[in-house]
């Protein structure tokens, strides 16, 4: 009994965490290089819309996924151009990008699809062998492919950021861009790459909703998830493991509150709904002192030759 309860809640949490992982890992890479992109939610919406539209019209899930990644990369490029080349204030241009993505996805949805529809998205891919392990199998190995990829992304991103020359350059661009520049690192190019990569992952985050987890599209489908993803980057202290922990904590508490209500446990629904946010704030407060590795050049455009 207790095993199935834990399995049910944890398996919900794993699914709920998926879009946050893509978006927050992408945002972590961008922020480590010194660019704050608040447009994540807008990029997610465009990714979600494009993936949904392509699957609706062609039936090809992989084409939908690639298109979502593509539109994410294009919007990342736009953000990079605005914040790196034009050196516009990052916070404001990010909010602009969000509103642009929200508006454009709504407009295109209205013009091309018109009304809410459902599609057949990525099916669950039960991993042979592993899925038979009691509890663990139910929690981790009964999901669609985009869930697995999201979790695989965490160690991959950690490795790239901490064990490769590229990762070193990314962190240098975000901590001491002048020093990095003097050592021959092309700071602007690095930032372009990270923001485009972040955009790509945000696009995939949107696709994970529209063609894998929810299999539908609606105006403002993400409901502000992109902003929670940005918050998770701070929560996780710009570490991929911290982001994973934050995403899992937030979605576990969310899964618990859903489960409590479904099971008819007598808690007021308003209280249950507050829980994810209250717990997140409590943990954030408890960890406040330990959070020291804010990228020094975050939110600061790099001017070559200045110092």
């Amino acid at each position: 009994m207790i095993g199935s309860v834990i399995a049910g809640i944890a398996s919900s949490a794993v699914r709920l965490a998926t879009p946050y992982l893509y978006a927050a890992i992408g945002e972590t890479i961008g922020q480590l290089s010194g660019v704050l992109n608040l447009g994540v939610d807008g990029i997610m919406l465009m990714g979600a819309y494009v993936a949904f539209f392509i699957v609706l019209r062609t039936g090809s899930l992989s084409l939908g996924l690639i298109s979502a990644a593509g539109i994410g990369a294009v919007l990342g490029l736009l953000m990079a151009f605005i914040s790196v080349t034009l050196k516009a204030e990052q916070g404001i241009s990010g909010i602009g990008l969000y509103i642009f993505g929200l508006g454009l996805s709504t407009l295109l949805f209205g013009m091309t699809v018109g009304h809410v529809q459902t599609i057949d998205g990525f099916p669950d891919l039960v991993i042979p062998g592993l899925s038979a392990i009691p509890v663990i199998g139910d929690i981790f190995f009964h999901h669609n492919i985009l869930v697995y990829v999201a979790f695989a992304l965490v160690p991959i991103a950690w490795f790239v950021l901490n064990r490769t020359p590229f990762g070193l350059k990314v962190r240098a661009a975000g901590q001491k861009p002048e020093a990095a520049d003097s050592l021959g690192v092309n700071v602007e190019r690095i930032r372009y790459m990270t923001v485009i990569l972040g955009g790509t992952l945000s696009g995939v985050a949107g696709a994970s909703l529209s063609i894998a987890l929810l299999n539908t599209f609606q105006q403002n489908l993400t409901n502000g998830m992109g902003f929670i993803a940005v918050a998770l980057v701070y929560f996780g202290g710009w570490r991929t493991s911290g982001v994973l922990l934050g995403a899992l904590l937030f979605s576990t508490v969310n899964a618990i509150q859903v489960w409590l209500q479904v099971k008819g446990v007598n808690v007021p629904s308003d209280f249950a709904l507050m829980m994810p946010y209250v717990v997140t704030i409590l943990v954030l407060t408890a960890m406040a002192k330990r959070r020291v590795n804010t990228p020094a050049a975050l939110n600061k455009p790099f001017e070559r030759g200045e110092s």
């Binding site: 709920l16 879009p19 409901n223």
Partner: peptide, 16 residues
Amino acid sequence: SVTWTGSYSDVSLAAE
């Protein structure tokens, strides 16, 4: 079993 999601628009939570 009645569950309130606290939102008119949280598609993801409704699905879960």
